[in-house]
Simulated assay, not measured.
Amino acid sequence: MTLPITEGGVGSLLRKWRRRRKISQHELALQVETSARHLSFVETGRSRPSRSLLHRLADGLEIPLRQRNTLLVSAGYSPLYQETPLEAPRLKVVREAVDRLITAHAPYPALAVDADEDIVAMNLGAELLLAEVSPALLVPPVNVMRVCLHPEGLARQVVNVDEWRSHLLGRLYRQSVYSGRESLRELYDEVTAYGPRTAKDCQELSDTIVASIRVRALGTELKLFSTITTFGAATDITVAELSLETMHPADAHTAAAFRAAAERQPDRKASMSLLSRSA
C-alpha cells in the first residue's frame, strides 16, 4: 500500500483535519483528554504526539482509516490499517455478504460502491433501472455519479431532476469534505459541469438520509427512495470504504412494475459483480 507524501508533518495534517471539522483546539483537547497547550504544540511541530494520542485525535476528528495511516506515518509510526483488494480470498466473506444483501433486495435496485463512487456490484433491479442509460457510461469502472448525472445517463429519465441532482451533488460534496479525498473533489467538479450550477447545489453539507426520485423507466413512471448503509467497525480500509445503496418503491405501482420486469427475465442473475471487468 502506497501512502501519500505529506508536507508539514503530522501537526499540519491534524490542523487541517481540525479545521475541516470546524472544531477549536480547546474543544478537541477536552474531547481527547489532553491540554489545549499540548495540542497546540503538536500542531506547530513543537511536540511529537504519542501513538495513543494520535488514535484519540483520529477518533475525535472522525478521520477515515486510509487517512489515519497517513497520519501515523507522518508522526513516525508504522501504518496500522490494511487495504485488501476486494477480490482477495481474505475478503470472501465480505463479497458474499454484499452479494446476499443486494440479491435479497431484488427485484428493487441495489448496488455496492467504493470510496470513489465506483460500482463494484449491482443487482438485477439496478440493471433494469439503468437499461436506457448510454452504454458508454456502463463500461467499467462504472461511476454511480456519472451514471446518474450525465446528460446521457439516468438524469434524462428523472422527472424531479433538479431535486435529485441537488441531493446527489450535496452528498458527493459532503463525502469529499469528510474524507479529504482529492479524487472525490475532482469528481464533484466534473459532474457539476454536466448541468447549470446553482447556489443550492453544492457548497452545502447535505445530511439527507432518504432521497426521493421519480423516474421514467420500465415503460412507466416509478417513484423510489434511496438509503445508504456502510460496514460498521471495519478495520480494513477496503471494507470501511464500501457502501450499499438500496432503492425502495415509494408506492404499490412501482413495486408491481419491478416485480413484473424481473419476472420477464427469469434467466438473469439476481446480482452481478463488476470487479472482473474493472479497469
Rank of each mutant, 00 (worst) to 15 (best):
residue 96 E to T: 13
residue 85 P to T: 13
residue 30 L to I: 04
residue 42 V to P: 01
residue 50 S to Q: 01
residue 96 E to R: 08
residue 31 Q to L: 14
residue 114 D to P: 01
residue 96 E to M: 04
residue 48 R to F: 03
residue 109 P to G: 04
residue 80 L to M: 12
residue 54 L to H: 09
residue 48 R to W: 05
residue 90 R to F: 00
residue 110 A to T: 04
residue 58 A to T: 07
residue 29 A to S: 11
residue 39 L to A: 08
residue 43 E to K: 12
residue 37 R to I: 10
residue 106 A to D: 14
residue 71 L to N: 05
residue 52 S to W: 02
residue 105 H to L: 05
residue 66 R to T: 07
residue 64 P to I: 10
residue 113 V to I: 15
residue 57 L to P: 01
residue 103 T to G: 05
residue 96 E to V: 06
residue 107 P to Q: 09
residue 38 H to N: 13
residue 74 S to T: 09
residue 81 Y to W: 15
residue 114 D to Q: 06
residue 28 L to C: 07
residue 29 A to W: 11
residue 109 P to E: 11
residue 42 V to G: 06
residue 71 L to S: 03
residue 54 L to Y: 10
residue 29 A to N: 05
residue 77 Y to D: 10
residue 80 L to C: 06
residue 44 T to S: 15
residue 107 P to L: 11
residue 94 V to R: 03
residue 72 L to W: 02
residue 39 L to D: 07
residue 66 R to V: 10
residue 41 F to H: 13
residue 28 L to N: 04
residue 88 A to N: 15
residue 28 L to F: 05
residue 73 V to P: 10
residue 68 R to N: 07
residue 81 Y to G: 06
residue 37 R to S: 14
residue 42 V to C: 12
residue 44 T to V: 03
residue 98 V to M: 08
residue 89 P to I: 06
residue 74 S to Q: 02
residue 54 L to S: 10
residue 50 S to L: 09
residue 76 G to K: 07
residue 54 L to T: 11
residue 82 Q to Y: 09
residue 100 R to G: 07
residue 69 N to R: 00
residue 111 L to Y: 15
residue 38 H to F: 12
residue 92 K to R: 15
residue 91 L to C: 13
residue 84 T to L: 02
residue 109 P to F: 10
residue 33 E to K: 14
residue 108 Y to V: 07
residue 68 R to I: 07
residue 50 S to K: 03
residue 68 R to G: 04
residue 37 R to N: 15
residue 59 D to I: 06
residue 97 A to C: 13
residue 66 R to D: 11
residue 76 G to Q: 10
residue 98 V to Y: 01
residue 44 T to Y: 06
residue 69 N to F: 07
residue 58 A to P: 08
residue 110 A to E: 02
residue 94 V to G: 04
residue 102 I to F: 02
residue 36 A to T: 15
residue 31 Q to G: 03
residue 115 A to N: 08
residue 63 I to G: 00
residue 28 L to Q: 03
residue 111 L to H: 12
residue 110 A to G: 05
residue 85 P to K: 00
residue 31 Q to Y: 04
residue 52 S to D: 15
residue 36 A to P: 03
residue 88 A to W: 05
residue 81 Y to L: 11
residue 27 E to P: 00
residue 29 A to R: 02
residue 90 R to I: 08
residue 107 P to V: 09
residue 99 D to Y: 06
residue 36 A to E: 13
residue 45 G to W: 14
residue 97 A to Q: 15
residue 84 T to G: 03
residue 62 E to I: 00
residue 88 A to D: 15
residue 35 S to M: 13
residue 73 V to G: 01
residue 65 L to D: 01
residue 97 A to G: 10
residue 57 L to R: 01
residue 105 H to E: 08
residue 105 H to M: 10
residue 73 V to A: 13
residue 109 P to D: 08
residue 48 R to T: 14
residue 80 L to A: 13
residue 70 T to Q: 06
residue 79 P to D: 12
residue 60 G to D: 05
residue 105 H to P: 01
residue 35 S to I: 12
residue 88 A to C: 10
residue 111 L to Q: 08
residue 99 D to M: 13
residue 66 R to M: 01
residue 95 R to G: 09
residue 65 L to M: 04
residue 59 D to A: 15
residue 110 A to R: 02
residue 44 T to K: 09
residue 63 I to C: 03
residue 85 P to A: 13
residue 57 L to A: 06
residue 36 A to G: 11
residue 56 R to V: 01
residue 107 P to W: 14
residue 97 A to T: 15
residue 71 L to E: 02
residue 66 R to P: 00
residue 105 H to S: 09
residue 67 Q to V: 14
residue 111 L to D: 02
residue 35 S to F: 14
residue 110 A to C: 06
